[in-house]
Design a protein around this nucleic acid. Structure first.
Lengths: 270, 270
DNA sequence: TAGTGGTCTAGACCACACA
DNA sequence: GTGTGGTCTAGACCACTAC
């Protein structure tokens, strides 16, 4: 098959400019990951196999897999193979890092105390944020996260009722709501807003905050399949919590050998 | 020249595994941009020219330029050429968006009032952050940013004295310190920490804040050539300021046609 | 030894922009 | 037209891993 044929038989008969073949390949693989056909740590077809099964050249298969690597979907090991990235790595792209993981990384103990877990009619403002009609039912969870028995975060989360139908059966003591949602389906979009605010009496009591101490409030909205599925308000005591991030542009030699794991700002730390 | 020769004459005689040629090309171009040899909007050699001048194949030149595009260093227009990315676009990678630009994007008027601009001996904690010896002199600027004459940010910034030797001659009314530093040299690394904190009396007065209103405090440290050059504390009134960001994973078709310019979380908005 | 990814080549066709 | 980037091919050599 000549280069001309490759183009011709590929898509020259189609109406508008078709997607490039490497892009089609990428989307096909992303789709297999999203659908659960390929699960984390599963082996992804090798370049050679993709050449055989899809008819593209190896360079094209290579580009698709390389870009999926850059985008965090898969991990490649020379001489071994290509594998679906671990959930932990993938969720970093979209999550303010799971608070339980963060606490564990600091070598501390995480514990959650669920105060409220029910389905209930949604307030108008939150109905708007979740694109559901006002007054319809949504799942709601209200809990406190502890680090070594010190309260560090109050989580007030609303989840659309059709997205997670066994939401109310969860325990949420060990698996945080955020981690649970990541298990159900890979989150595809996230929006964050960070504010400084004085807490109400209830939040202040739950977080054992001093009288004049402000809260760092993070509100997060996450999308799956172009629909908002969850809205959360995360309250943190200003004296005991901060969000940090570091950014270094890509394509530059490592300038900070001393601190090895530099995270991007979208991976909130600490 | 065969493929074997290309590898051989290229670097098979070197001791350790050499950098791939596309990477060498990338670093060479990044270096020309960093040094000012290539300035924003300047034309970058075309793929064909790189083939002629460096002896690589066009696919290799293409990969180098394509990755530089992904990384925000250059912009490419099919049929026209490759150009060094505009400073504005490039600085987004590293800056909490310049507050003056943000205010202008909202269609409001930005104004800055410089309260303090001098060189002075540095306090121990800041000396530590900037990797200079305690008591040595650093440049310091202290100013208030206004949005439509409402104070919105107090900036307290320290800059190493050898990095910007005309720092004290700046006006900082129209060009913010952040924009000025970006002009001097492209920042290569940035660290952010976000906190909620009650302001001191001075900050509260400057920002015209109510008595029990908290501050959203962002501290930023930026590096050039692996050395920290600037440390800034940015104070914002909690009732009038928030940090927001949206993230969508790459490689997915657009899911939100209604809001076109989705920014990554590292581009803090509003 | 066979399979994997990492890289590279020397061509090719295409759509597009600009003169 | 000419030049540009965007894509694709059908090979190739290499280093590495696993058996």
């Amino acid at each position: 098959m000549t280069a001309a044929n490759a183009q011709g038989c590929g898509y020259s008969h189609m109406t508008s400019t078709p997607k490039p073949r490497y892009q089609q390949l990428k989307e096909q693989i992303i789709s297999r990951i999203s659908s659960g056909d390929l699960r984390p740590l599963d082996r992804v077809p090798s370049e050679h196999e993709l050449v055989g099964s899809t008819g593209v050249s190896r360079m094209t298969a290579n580009r698709a897999l390389r870009e999926l690597t850059d985008e965090g979907y898969v991990e490649r090991v020379a001489g071994v193979g290509t594998f679906v990235a671990d959930l932990k790595a993938a969720s970093h792209l979209l999550e303010v890092r799971n608070i339980a993981d963060e606490i564990q990384m600091r070598g501390h103990e995480h514990r959650a105390s669920v105060i409220d877990l029910e389905s209930r009619p949604v307030a108008p403002d939150i109905a708007d944020l979740l694109h559901v009609s006002a007054g319809s039912r949504v799942n709601h969870v209200f809990l406190v996260h502890f680090e070594n028995d010190i309260p560090i975060q109050v989580e007030d989360r609303y989840v659309t009722i059709d997205f997670a139908n066994d939401f109310l059966d969860q325990n949420f003591q060990n698996v945080t709501p955020s981690a649970y949602l990541s298990l159900i389906a890979p989150l595809q979009e996230a929006e964050h807003v960070v504010r400084a605010k004085m807490p109400g009496a209830r939040i202040r009591r739950l977080l054992k905050m001093r009288a004049k101490e402000p809260c760092l409030v993070v509100t997060r909205r996450t999308w799956v399949s172009a629909r908002p599925v969850s809205f959360a308000r995360l309250f943190h005591p200003g004296s005991r919590f901060e969000l940090a991030g570091r950014y270094r542009p890509p394509g530059i030699a490592n300038s900070h050998p001393q601190d090895s794991n530099i995270v991007e700002l979208r991976n909130f730390d600490r």
